Simulated scan of single mutants.
Amino acid sequence: MVSHRRPTRPGLHHGVRATVLSAAAATAAATLGSAPASAVPEDTPGTAKAAVDRLYVEAERATEQYNAARESLGRQRGRVARAQDAAARTQEDINRMRASLGSMAGAQYRSGGIDPSVQLLLSSDPDTFLDRAAALDRVGERRAVTLGKLHRAQRRIAQTRAEAAGALAALERDRAAVARHKRTVVAKLARAREVLHALPAADRESLDRASRSGAAGTLADGAPASARGLAALMAARQALGRPYVWGAEGPDGFDCSGLMRWAYAQAGVGLPRTSQEQRYAGRTVPLAEARPGDLVAYRADASHIGMYAGNGQVIHAPYPGAAVRYDPVGMMPVSSVTRV
């Protein structure tokens, strides 16, 4: 399990510590539902820390799912708007064609309701006959063309309306997904706060200030692989100290993938919204060859991401309550390194 916190200071009275940590462990077990009812977590300072770590990990995963659902929601809104616009334009075409056909029918009615071909046969003047025949052919062709266009437009508007209905259904599904993931994030963070608040103030402050565990490693402080990587790194450095805000992509607050997207946007590069998509936004390189500006994805599901800053460190937005900062690149299992 990835650690966000240092162990509690040894000076805490054993009786108080045991009581507090037992309450924290019980809260965590009820929240996570991962241990059987008969299992009693060991009363150690690491129990509360492990519970908070896991809650933050689960909240971060739900945050990335929220980001993905919100992106999809935006796409569906555009799809609905385009389908509705196309249907409106097609309906205008249909109305015009129906009006044109109505004019043709009205002209025939005003001529006495006699079929034009019959009237043509009654003409005794050869020149008039030929003129009327040519005109009749043109009218018939126009009518046939208009009818063909009308039929095609009617099929097109039926298809467009079906597409709009599908987009609307997808829109509602995405809205529900956004709301569901938001509830999950809020619940996980609330539980993490409960566990933290159950600790004595000194231990809570120690946990809040602690860095994730992990060694910096032996990676060299090499030059950025590209000018855009350097520009993105400089932007990320400007964000140091700004708060983690789940679902945010700057400039005043960030979640992990929001920081990466914002930093690369300052370099003129568009990244996808989620950490899972960002890991495929460029060329994969080995961790040993990481250069400043590369994206470092963590965990097998790439639910966290940071930017390699050189000297075995990354810049990232860690978790709620922590500001954008440097941490060791080995703070969590690295799943991939991406050069944008």
Rank of each mutant, 00 (worst) to 15 (best):
T146S: 11
V52L: 06
R96E: 12
P200G: 15
H4F: 11
P292A: 09
R273A: 03
L150H: 00
N311A: 15
L233R: 09
A215L: 14
S100Y: 08
S123I: 14
G46K: 06
P318G: 06
A105I: 06
T146E: 10
T218Q: 14
E71W: 04
A288C: 05
A177D: 14
T146H: 06
S124W: 02
L259N: 00
A202R: 15
E64I: 04
A86F: 10
Y244T: 03
E163Q: 08
R77M: 08
S34E: 13
S111F: 10
R299G: 13
R6E: 14
S103H: 12
E163A: 08
A288V: 07
D255C: 04
R242K: 09
G140K: 08
Y66E: 10
Y56K: 11
A169I: 12
L259I: 08
D203R: 05
Y280F: 13
I114M: 14
A235C: 04
E249W: 00
A29E: 09
R79M: 11
G250A: 01
R191E: 13
R155G: 07
A88G: 07
Q84M: 08
Y319N: 13
V185H: 06
Y66M: 03
Q278I: 14
A26L: 14
D203L: 08
G293C: 11
G102Y: 03
D255K: 03
A87E: 00
L12Y: 02
G33I: 04
A323V: 12
A317M: 06
H304P: 10
V118C: 08
Y244Q: 02
G293V: 11
R191N: 15
S213D: 12
A232E: 03
S3P: 01
L207N: 08
G312Y: 10
G241V: 04
A35M: 09
G306V: 02
Q91K: 07
A309E: 07
L21F: 04
A187T: 13
V139N: 14
